[in-house]
Design a protein around this nucleic acid. Sequence first.
DNA 1: AGTATCCTGGAACCACGATTCCAGGATGGC
DNA 2: GCCATCCTGGAATCGTGGTTCCAGGATACT
Lengths: 199, 199
Amino acid sequence: MPDIKHFDPDAALDTAVRLFWRQGMATTGIQDIVTATGLNRSSLYATFGGKQELYLAALNRYVRLRSRPRYRRLAEDGRGLPAVTDFFEGLIAARCSGEYAGWGCMVVNAQAGAEYGDSAVRALLERHHQDLRDALHAALVAAEELGQLAPGVDPRPTADVLALLAYGVNLRSRAGADARALRATVTAALHSIGRPPAT
Amino acid sequence: MPDIKHFDPDAALDTAVRLFWRQGMATTGIQDIVTATGLNRSSLYATFGGKQELYLAALNRYVRLRSRPRYRRLAEDGRGLPAVTDFFEGLIAARCSGEYAGWGCMVVNAQAGAEYGDSAVRALLERHHQDLRDALHAALVAAEELGQLAPGVDPRPTADVLALLAYGVNLRSRAGADARALRATVTAALHSIGRPPAT
DNA sequence: AGTATCCTGGAACCACGATTCCAGGATGGC
DNA sequence: GCCATCCTGGAATCGTGGTTCCAGGATACT
């Protein structure tokens, strides 16, 4: 090993994630990434390849660090509906406050944009969608076993409903939606699938 | 009036709508529009101004011709839940089959993309969101008056839930979601807010 | 019929896009 | 301490982006 990288590839990729996440792929130039990371074009290309590959790597990192842990926690939480409530609560908090407020979800943004032409991106998005569905489904099955669901509420299609609702939350958050309004909406949705308080 | 336009501006704008809708603003070049419309750059610029203004005009046309009539029909339909069902049915049909299958909703795409930087675009998107909410709300109020809603279902937050659900449908349709799956999801959502069949 | 006005065609412009290349410098194994 | 190997810096390349300009032609009023 004659020489070693003078920078941290993960940190650089993280900067790229932020740029692509906020601005989308098409409107983010290599120059933006060069400027933001402070490292040189040559190093970028040598490390990540072209823009497409860099975007894909960034999207992968986003999913691995930001989406999957959240879904995993939801899927493994055995409390049923409270787990779902917490999931949405955390989602809204992440989308509407803190460093990434108003950025939406990078995966959702990719789905609506043209990033989407790439087939590797498509595959990643599809996989991501399945992960979300499955996590919600697991939580709802737990809820069902705990007797928390209203009669006639089927976990599988209901998980799909909540997945689409999550997409909606991500979209609206990018438009600057108010966290309280989103919370109220989610609460209403969860209310309608929960068992009414025993009379 | 010494000379008159040799083309139909509305037809040209319609072509622009299609391009921006499918590909997004950032990835659609003026050259694409020139090629697709067959008319000249000069005529384009003389008629619509720059790219930003052209995009805004296209977005406006999309909302006026494609979104608003749909919302209007929903708002003025007095049947309650069946009106909502029909609305989603029509939405899914438009998104998953025919000429525009897999294109999603231009407004939703704009929200997730970077088109969004423009403040005129933001205003239009916000207005569009209110229109959707209001239309769903009107239909749900009718449903409530007709006794179609389950007890404890409040029209206002429920309209918000359904609006987010519609966003989700639009997004997933762009990812090539199956129409039958989307229908099943929507059915499940509407089922959970409807009054259970009288015992 | 003349003419001022507007539209069209095409080339030209300038900036910025992604990408590549080469020289210079630093490193770790022998 | 030498050298092959890799990394870095910056310039250069080549295409494409949006936008403008000018000459030529068509029109409707006088």
